[in-house]
Design a protein around this nucleic acid. Sequence first.
DNA 1: ATCTATTTTTAGATTTGTCTAAATTTAATT
DNA 2: AATTAAATTTAGACAAATCTAAAAATAGAT
Lengths: 231, 231
Amino acid sequence: MSNKNVFLKKYFLMTRSEENYLKTIFHLGGGDSNSITTNAIAEQMETKPSSVTDMAKKLSEKGLVDYVRYQGVSLTDAGVKTALSIIRKHRLWEVFLVQKLDFTWDEVHEVAEQLEHIKSEKLIDKIDELLDFPKYDPHGDPIPTKDGKFQERDKKLLSEMPINSQGVCVGVKDSSVPFLKFLDKNNIALGNSIKVVDKEDFDHSLHILMNGKELRISHQIASNLYVKKND
Amino acid sequence: MSNKNVFLKKYFLMTRSEENYLKTIFHLGGGDSNSITTNAIAEQMETKPSSVTDMAKKLSEKGLVDYVRYQGVSLTDAGVKTALSIIRKHRLWEVFLVQKLDFTWDEVHEVAEQLEHIKSEKLIDKIDELLDFPKYDPHGDPIPTKDGKFQERDKKLLSEMPINSQGVCVGVKDSSVPFLKFLDKNNIALGNSIKVVDKEDFDHSLHILMNGKELRISHQIASNLYVKKND
DNA sequence: ATCTATTTTTAGATTTGTCTAAATTTAATT
DNA sequence: AATTAAATTTAGACAAATCTAAAAATAGAT
Ligand SMILES: [Mn+2]
Ligand SMILES: [Mn+2]
Ligand SMILES: [Mn+2]
Ligand SMILES: [Mn+2]
């Protein structure tokens, strides 16, 4: 390989692994000069801390993270920007799979994990356009704009809503396949209206109206459902 | 990694590199017990013969190619099947990019080289359905069916058509970006009607009618355009 | 301030895919 | 049949990404 290409490779081309590390660090809160420990990253990625250390050095070399030995890593501005572009791709692909190909919301994540690494700016911009520039993915998570703007929704956990408050179900905290399938089975979907009728002190379970229908919800469920409160 | 997963990895999971080798061997005619030399594969893939030898051993180990030292490799039935599934994905993605995302036919190959490695049977079947089960890709190449059936079209090179014969432009032999852009610039597209008016003995150039309009075509162009002859 | 448990890093090994250079085999030519 | 040229393989190296085991640093508790 020519010298120029070695340079390009070292400083611009991201490997799939590097992209996954940046994404994970972002999800663990590594933006805003917030340090994340190698252990936390290793656990999240189901890898070993020593592997994380190696990658921390490489990403630091590339100017994507700040890394201080024994102190953990935080994303640089360039690192945040790259992480957001991967997350943007991931979430747009998830919307595409649901809206255009009839995937269910529990099927999309695994495929999006692959599609998010496809390198083509034109491709993702066209997908964005095809979907009419969606703001949220199938799990209610916000989709960063092309220039990396991030609009988190004003939402709170159902478990934290007071009695008699009303709102609309807008997202899930746990987006694991079993939880999503459980929600499907119980006809709980994003967009459903919610009113908290009563809360049980003993086990923190809730008595709610969902789309007008009475429902009992355990604390575990309620603490993994996001609701946008009506004014 | 558990023993079971090591087994799965070794015998079922294809790496991107392995998939690219199988595809290349197929394109070089390695089906039907036809042996392809390591040199030919290396040249096509812009890699070194020694690397091809290494991969030949690995693919042979997996039962995807027959490999005899110093004699080259041919695809086994399993190898052909795998190669066809990659080619199917490649061509379906190319159609998708052109039909759904307004890519031009010279832009799609590079992106399809990435997309063809996405692992999800449901994804490619749904893309196939979304496109209404296309039979040919944007360059006129046939798309293998889900069960690996391959229907090559009855076509011949424009350069081999006799004077006064007529037909429809259905494909390109050279699908390089410069050639495709050249065709665009000269309004030569798949689907155009073609009538050979005259052939020049001296330089083998052609005088044709394309969609009724007179055009002069060099031998180099004519020998890279496929035409389906009218009965 | 010292000890100790935990976290983190280092050192060295492994796998995959590649390369170069040397050795070997095959094919072509006398 | 012997020689030579070309094709192919082997041997050994390297980069990327990972691991295990051992060493080093940090943080918490006395
Ligand atoms: Mn996801
Ligand atoms: Mn999501
Ligand atoms: Mn192509
Ligand atoms: Mn094509």
